[in-house]
């Protein structure tokens, strides 16, 4: 029985093995596709969030490369997450933090030494983003990150969990960041057509 069974099992096993392999290949192909779609949809958001807090563009890119690679390796688990983008942000942020702790990059340049944001006429998307980034870099890091994540559509709870903050803080940081940005914008001469009213409003909210 056993021998027969063995023989029968063997062919069966081979079949199953082949089927499993085919299934694995199918799953992998599906995951590959899923991952590619995820990367394409999430990359710009993660990049904008990280760059709102980190001035060094290359550091951000390195961190993103590693985070997405690890994301691909663990995609079979990540795909089950509510929003895998959260994990990518967390992973890339840790990578940047470790980098910074290793080489004390922050010590090399202090906010007070930052080159002033160039005053240009904001005519296109790229210029708007660059100007905004320049202003964000002048805000406290936490304010900048929270603000940018909110811009990318994350809820307060999501932001709190991804950045490791309390929800109370997220609410405060968001308000503080917007106030800081408005001040910087007004300082740079972007007061809108109705400058007085807006100034009054911002004074009132302080």
């Amino acid at each position: 029985m056993e021998f027969e069974g063995t023989a029968a099992l063997t062919t069966d096993q081979v079949d199953r093995e082949t089927a499993r392999k085919a299934e694995a290949a199918r799953v992998k192909a599906a995951h590959d596709q899923e991952f590619a779609a995820f990367a394409e949809a999430s990359y710009h958001q993660v990049e904008r969030i990280l760059r709102s807090a980190c001035r060094d563009r290359e550091v951000v890119e390195d961190a993103l490369n590693e985070a997405y690679l690890h994301g691909r390796v663990k995609w079979s688990e990540l795909r089950a997450h509510d929003r895998p983008i959260g994990w990518i942000v967390v992973t890339a942020r840790f990578k940047i933090m470790k980098d910074r702790q290793r080489c004390q990059r922050e010590a090399a340049m202090a906010p007070e030494d930052l080159p002033p944001v160039p005053r240009s006429n904001i005519a296109d998307v790229w210029e708007a983003q660059e100007t905004l980034r320049g202003w964000l870099h002048q805000l406290p890091t936490r304010h900048a990150e929270v603000f940018q994540m909110a811009q990318e559509g994350f809820s307060n709870q999501e932001i709190a969990r991804i950045l490791g903050l309390t929800e109370n803080s997220v609410r405060s940081y968001k308000v503080a960041a917007r106030r800081g940005l408005r001040e910087l914008a007004e300082e740079a001469g972007y007061t809108g057509p109705d400058g007085h009213r807006r100034q009054g409003v911002s004074r009132g909210s302080r």
Partner: peptide, 11 residues
């Protein structure tokens, strides 16, 4: 142009 316009353009 003010902050909101810039934000809208950047986002």
């Amino acid at each position: 142009m003010d902050l909101d316009d810039i934000l809208a353009l950047a986002e």
